[in-house]
Design a protein around this nucleic acid. Structure first.
Lengths: 116, 116
DNA sequence: CCCATGTACAACCATCGAGTTGTACGTTAG
DNA sequence: CTAACGTACAACTCGATGGTTGTACATGGG
């Protein structure tokens, strides 16, 4: 039934990670092209440590992964987790459709039993 | 290009609202069936005021809407906003595919010019 | 080897967020 | 009208978060 395969803790981490515009921007950037942490840090008007923390939050959520290359740490997008988050929201929409169907069925049934 | 139509502030509010499991649970419940705030409050082991605050956060994000019915406040799901949030994540996936296509094109070009 | 680079991490500060309790207000049933 | 119900909101506590600076450590180039 649950296709997204996310625990409540996963969802907590993922949505919390996405709830910050700097972090969403980082995700967008690494989706375009993988970059080192310092490459990313140059783009923002905050300290390197702050950007590092944002990357850490994204990493804990699985939205991003780091791979060493020499002395740099290259940040990759965690495509699978993005997909899972999308699936979760999709399941909300399905829930709604299912409910509408249920109500339709109920109305139809009331309709048929109305002649009693 | 941007199909979801969400501002950065919108996205902040939406993802922040979804980053709490109680609030996600409330969304799930009202997707199943609209309920009053006190109906919802009965389901959780926290104060009425706390649940009220959660509903307010969801409302500010547009994930939920309240409509007065007598002395009760009925909570409805904000289906459109859920859909917009899904679209945003979808656009991330598209970004990725676009990038892969770009790289493919680049490799192909390098391939053709290699015979020069 | 040595220094600059890229990173990691701790300590600190201010603000925010989630929860509480208490009070006030409108609405409906008697 | 009055009492109970459902809601709204302010004030408070306390832990989490986003930001800072400072220090330490590994690695690659000259």
């Amino acid at each position: 039934m649950v296709v997204h395969g996310l625990s409540e803790d996963d969802a907590d981490r993922i949505f919390h990670a996405l709830a910050d515009r700097t972090r969403r921007d980082i995700v967008t950037r690494v989706l375009h092209a993988e970059q080192s942490v310092s490459d990313l840090a140059e783009r923002y008007s905050m300290s390197f440590a702050a950007v590092q923390k944002h990357v850490a939050v994204l990493e804990r959520a699985g939205l991003v992964r780091k791979v060493r290359r020499g002395r740099e740490q290259i940040v990759h997008a965690g495509l699978d987790v993005i997909h899972q988050a999308k699936s979760l929201l999709e399941s909300y929409e399905h829930l709604w459709r299912h409910r509408v169907a249920r109500i339709d069925a109920l109305l139809a049934e009331t309709d048929t039993t109305q002649g009693d």
